[in-house]
Design a protein around this nucleic acid. Structure first.
Lengths: 230, 230
DNA sequence: ACGCTACTGCCATAAACTGTCAGCAGGAAG
DNA sequence: CTTCCTGCTGACAGTTTATGGCAGTAGCGT
């Protein structure tokens, strides 16, 4: 017999496996528990903050996200998480920046008082705050990279020339004030870089590009004069 | 009667309050539970990853750090944490950088497979990798800032002139390749900045400096031409 | 209206937790 | 070495909690 806490994690994982709504009956069978107990388990998870939505006649869906189990961090690891989140909150594109601030707030909320001031503003990130607004959704670009999707760009280069091209994005570079997509350009048959703030419009195709992202990254590195660490 | 899970959190907090070893008997009384049950509770916490050390004849000590309770993060919040940790692993001083990598590994270990590739190297941080080794322990500096401690610096400036001075550090600035301490200098009776890689030697005093860190930061900001966001 | 499903209350039973007692092991101090 | 303090484990009975089955209500889609 598995412990209750483990069963709840199993339930979460099961729920995440499905993309569409799942009925309680199915979940009860998969976790090896009665329907009545399943309802109680769902209630427990919701009480702990899991965003599970249940609708009568439909089933349960887990809002995209993930529940971290209880974890032990050393003081320095925690400091690294906090510092990193603060950097993201300042340097990343607005949407991800907000996510960074939210994550920071969640962590700070559960920190004991004597550690909470770690989150305060005794750290400065210097340089102009990024003000170039991205027209493109950088989060979507990151997802396209993860899924190795073809990206169709409507792009204006530094001379203001506008072009439309299909590219295979394999990495995102974070410079001080801009983010740059590293991609293989179908038009030029070569590697090209695209500043996210110069993207006028873009479409993410449903089809994968025919090569592996990691291979492209490796080849791209070999073409660089000065190797860039990941 | 409190639930078992809450009692375990209480036990952790109690254990963190003490700095020196605590005997099981004391912990049992504070958590309102028998000694036998306390031993079982300790075992439960250790099984969940808490770094509690017990020595016969001594008592229990919790290694410095903190256990985060189960927390729900959205996909983007998780992405922010991962991106931030990767930045820390690359840009911070070696010790904190290692901590960032460790934190990242811990998170990655509990991520479901379809989210784990978020941790991979599709993000580049561009620019030369920091190679100036800090002689000073930047973690210690951060702690000194938090505790508002007087810092005694043995410092070499850009002209190579060596000086020794007492300063009141109130913030740490992360530039691209160097870290800079913002402090009030007792010698000059003014704000001064000190690159951490130019610190030859330093001593952290046990005495607090006579002003509040936040006030110093506020005053310092007002002296700046270009305001720097925190 | 009907079927499907989430959700809640009740209750007997099964499982887990708890406290008491006993004993062993390891470090500290005399 | 002995003694004391403490961590740690096992056994057992009492208590608490979790579980499953049942019945009933309510919301959603057809």
């Amino acid at each position: 017999m598995v412990a209750r806490s483990e069963r709840l994690l199993t339930l979460l994982q099961t729920l995440r496996r499905y993309r569409r709504p799942v009925t309680g009956t199915v979940l009860a069978e998969e976790t090896g528990v009665s329907l009545r107990t399943l309802y109680r388990d769902i209630a427990s998870l919701q009480a702990q903050g899991a965003m599970i939505e249940g609708e009568a006649g439909i089933g349960y869906v887990l809002k995209p996200g993930f529940m971290l189990p209880p974890m032990m961090f050393s003081e320095e690891e925690l400091e690294a998480l906090v510092l990193g989140s603060r950097w993201v909150a300042r340097a990343a594109e607005p949407r991800l920046a907000n996510a960074g601030a939210d994550a920071l707030a969640k962590i700070a909320a559960v920190l004991p008082p004597d550690m909470r001031d770690m989150v305060d503003s005794a750290t400065l990130f210097v340089g102009r705050k990024r003000q170039d607004e991205d027209k493109a959704d950088v989060s979507a670009i990151r997802k396209a990279i993860r899924l190795e999707r073809i990206l169709e760009l409507h792009y204006g280069d530094e001379q203001g020339r506008i072009s439309r091209r299909r590219v295979w994005p394999f990495a995102l570079g974070y410079f001080e004030h801009v983010r740059i997509i590293m991609a293989w350009c179908e038009l030029r048959q070569d590697f090209r870089h695209f500043r996210t703030d110069r993207i006028i419009d873009m479409t993410i195709h449903d089809t994968r590009y025919p090569r592996r992202r990691t291979v492209l990254l490796k080849e791209w590195r070999e073409t660089q004069d000065t190797p860039i660490e990941h």
